[in-house]
Amino acid sequence: MAENTEISVPNHVAMIMDGNGRWAEQLGKPRKYGHEEGMEAVRRVTIRASERGIKVLTLYAFSTENWKRPPQEVHFLMQLPIRFFDRFVPELQEKNVRVNMIGFPEKVPASTKKAIYKAMEETKDNTGMILNFAFNYGSRAEIAKATQAICQKVVAGEINVKEINESLIEQHLFTESISPYQDVDLLIRSSGEQRLSNFLLWQNAYSEFYFSDLLWPEFNGDVLDEALLSYKNRQRRYGAV
């Protein structure tokens, strides 16, 4: 694979990790086996992203719509962060990676939240890449929540309606926690599906898309490099000529 100097490195890469269940079913194994292997793919991609100098890696770990899945699968998915951080925080520390979470924590089981917040606390002083988990996250709900917060400030007389602009809205989105890298530069999705699935709709306004036919457990650092090399050849015009 090409050396780092040959790769154009975006500040913020976001990934929709799709295909764990299908990968397991192709092997005649239960879906949870795919999610287990998907956790290893997270580790591989995170380490390579950190080595490449990416500032923020946002992973769509659990959506607000994923609660519709069978209860047994949801329970297993809720256990994955506990197992992931218990196993990999020392390596994240070694790589100077800081853990962050965006989403709605209210519905997340206490043990899962505890594991995520513990990892965030343990890595809070790290100055390298931000590993940003979108957990119980939905973009439409995020934008609605931001709108409610802004409306409350208008009603309270703290701001005027005319002061509402893109910058103010961004300050009320979950991704304010990863400022100044809120906007996604490169969105990567596995499994051949080509849709956003309610993921960072605002933040992806001008991102470049990269779709891979590989299922998520098949992802590794080399696949990430292929996406970065594709990104290097894009021309980002932001509406200009």
Rank of each mutant, 00 (worst) to 15 (best):
A144S: 11
A144N: 09
C151E: 08
E163A: 04
Y117L: 08
A119N: 10
S139L: 04
V154Q: 06
V155I: 06
T147E: 00
Y137G: 02
G128S: 14
A119R: 10
K118S: 13
S111I: 12
E158W: 01
G157K: 02
I143T: 03
F135T: 07
L131Q: 01
Y137P: 01
M120F: 11
K113N: 15
I130C: 09
V108K: 07
P105I: 10
A146F: 08
E158Q: 15
G138E: 04
I143W: 01
M129T: 04
P105Y: 07
M129N: 05
I143D: 00
V154H: 03
G128L: 05
A144T: 02
T123L: 00
N126K: 04
A115T: 03
E106Q: 05
A149E: 13
Y137V: 02
K124M: 06
I143G: 03
Q152W: 07
K145D: 15
K162P: 08
A115W: 03
Q152H: 09
E158D: 13
Y137L: 05
V161T: 15
A110I: 14
Y117P: 00
K153S: 12
I130T: 15
S111Y: 15
G128C: 11
E142P: 00
A144R: 04
I159P: 01
K162I: 06
A146R: 05
A110E: 14
E106K: 13
V154E: 04
A156K: 00
T123S: 09
T123E: 02
F133N: 07
P109S: 10
K145C: 13
C151W: 05
K162C: 05
C151M: 13
I143H: 00
M129S: 11
K107I: 02
N160F: 00
I130M: 15
N160E: 15
A149D: 13
N136K: 09
A134F: 10
E121K: 12
K145V: 03
S139W: 01
T147D: 04
E158A: 11
E142F: 00
T112C: 12
N132Y: 13
F133Y: 10
E142H: 06
K118Y: 09
Y117G: 00
V161A: 10
A110P: 03
A115R: 02
E142V: 05
K145S: 15
M129R: 01
N136P: 04
K118Q: 14
S111M: 15
A119M: 11
A119I: 06
M120K: 13
A141E: 15
V161F: 11
T147W: 03
A149H: 15
I116S: 12
A115H: 04
A156V: 00
T147K: 07
S139Q: 00
G157I: 00
G138T: 05
K153M: 09
K145T: 14
G157E: 08
V154L: 10
V154N: 09
M120R: 06
K113C: 10
M120Q: 15
M129L: 14
Y137M: 02
A115E: 12
K107G: 04
N160T: 10
S139E: 02
I116M: 13
F133D: 02
K107P: 02
A115N: 06
A149P: 08
E106F: 12
T123F: 01
G128W: 01
A134L: 07
G138P: 01
A149W: 11
K145H: 12
